[in-house]
């Protein structure tokens, strides 16, 4: 089963408003998602929040696809209490691209984006406090990238701070 086009008023409105900055509006397994150009994600989030009542940012996360030229999927999930509807917004980012932070739109994004930075090394431009959140501050590498494995973890940090040979 493949994703089918998402036909709704909201999808049409978005397309009208953002034109070709929206690449795709689809439905898969009954879940709607929008694919936008990297620079359009924040305006779309803002539009959804202000004009379409999507006032609750559920999650921000990323997926790493090292074989693709645009290496990362950045995924925002928003929910509307008024419509009882959930929408995913996806953008494809190349390595090193610095997407704009969404903290200005949803405060929730603060820690969530820190986690994405920590795990994937995606730097958010304009984030108020972009530090690692789960890993120690001096840790090298970003664990959820596909090329990071248990053998490539930061042995130096483990040796210096825990005084054991390896963390395995």
């Amino acid at each position: 089963m493949a994703a089918t086009p998402w036909d709704s008023e909201l999808a049409r409105e978005l397309k009208e408003r953002f034109g070709d900055r929206i690449i795709e509006t689809s439905t898969y397994l009954g879940q709607n998602f929008i694919v936008t150009k990297p620079d359009a994600a924040i305006p779309v989030l803002e539009y959804l929040k202000l004009e379409a009542d999507f006032d609750y940012l559920v999650d921000v996360t990323a997926v790493d696809w090292p074989k693709r030229p645009e290496r990362f999927d950045l995924v925002y999930i928003v929910y509307s209490f008024a419509r009882n509807e959930r929408v995913r917004i996806k953008t494809y980012l190349p390595e090193g691209f610095k997407p704009e932070s969404s903290v200005g739109v949803h405060l929730t994004a603060n820690w969530l984006e820190r986690e994405v930075y920590d795990m994937f090394g995606i730097q958010f431009a304009g984030h108020p406090d972009l530090r690692r959140i789960l890993m120690p501050d001096e840790w090298q590498g970003h664990p959820l990238r596909k090329d990071y494995s248990i053998l490539r973890q930061d042995q130096t940090w483990v040796r210096e701070n825990l005084e054991i040979e390896s963390g395995q």
Partner: peptide, 17 residues
């Protein structure tokens, strides 16, 4: 493919993407 499913856990919305 991908899916996001969430449930009402005792602490709030628990989601799996």
């Amino acid at each position: 493919g991908e899916a996001y499913v969430s449930i009402e856990a005792p602490k709030g919305e628990l989601g799996y993407y």
